[in-house]
Design a protein around this nucleic acid. Sequence first.
DNA 1: CTTCTCACA
DNA 2: TGTGAGAA
Length: 132
Amino acid sequence: MPEPTYTIAELAREFALTPRAIRYYEDQGLIAPARAGVQRVYTRRDRIRLKLTLRGKRLGLSLAEIRELIDMYDTAPESTQLARLLEVLARQRAKLEQQREDIEAVLAELDGFERQCRDLLEGAERPAPRKR
DNA sequence: CTTCTCACA
DNA sequence: TGTGAGAA
């Protein structure tokens, strides 16, 4: 059985990406498909790397981080790879928690403004009784 | 289908 | 982090 291969259009369809995005990932060093003349030929291995790339993206990792992890996938020993993965994940967790703090601060400020607005509105609808 | 470039968000 | 257009 020969290796199954894929065209860029096939992978684009399978992973719901544009061919352009896949070429962009290649530019960023995440995949390195072979060529048949000028056309890219993707092997099962390229397909796996693309899948790993998308998993990294779901975790919110940068393409540079994903590239580093993917490179280790076929170079560094697994223990090294897993240790590095844990570092990246810890940093990502810290980043998300910081974002959550920032969002909560803005939400609190929003609460304050809303309260002021409602107070003003109430004042207009039910004006203070005039003195007579 | 390909490369490359410029522009845009 | 991508996209779209246009040239070749």
